[in-house]
Amino acid sequence: MTERTLRIEIQRYQPEDDEPPYWQGYNVPCEEHWVLLDALNHIKDHLDGTLSYRWSCHMAVCGSCGMVVNGDPMLACKTFVRDLPDTVRVAPLSNLPVERDLIVDQERFMTSLSEVSPWVIPAGTPPEDAEYRQSPQELARFRQYSMCINCLLCYAACPQVGLNPGYLGPAALALAHRYNLDSRDDGRLWRAEVTGSENGVWECTFVGECSEVCPKHVDPAGAIQQMKLANSLDWLTAPLRRKERS
């Protein structure tokens, strides 16, 4: 079994020390099949037990281990060490507050997500003795956007997230779009109050980096542009709806 020593420099931060973040390096003997998460676990188990980071499934479905590796946001469990150079700089996800070491404060996303009402808002009461019926074509419309694992790589990639603290962000908006496209849902206009607000889709300038880094191949950028269009058409037809109501 071939081993390769990787020099892993990690951005450390301990809030109780009241010092700014600093880099700490470790020489890690890596097996050929390892992912970066295995190297981090080796550091924690054998080299430095104080290193703090989130991880869980080790298979790119839980979204816990997002971090910035040599400048690129990625999941530590999905990054093979054989694809990495000999020196690697690992930092917490960009644009979000750092709580400790590689652990970021996710509250911004949790708040944004709840604000877009990420659940099916049906038109009327659900069918009594039957289930909602949905064709494969109807499922295909929104399926891509349902793949989001809330890993926040897109928040690290998006410069508007960094430039505007109030911006809802790619994942929250993509998830709003997932429900807007769901044939069982009737909540588009309800969500539009939030997605169409100043902190919603209009903060996006289609940099597109969110979609580039997404490990589940969701296209938040595309979702947001589609919502801009839908939102604009809703805005144009708003007078007709007001007339309907009165």
């Binding site: 169409g196 607000s197 805005w235």
Partner: peptide
């Protein structure tokens, strides 16, 4: 949050 009037700018922008 309230819906913004951004479409008045965005629609001409897109066109």
């Amino acid at each position: 949050m309230t819906m913004s009037n951004k479409p008045v700018i965005w629609l001409p922008f897109a066109a």
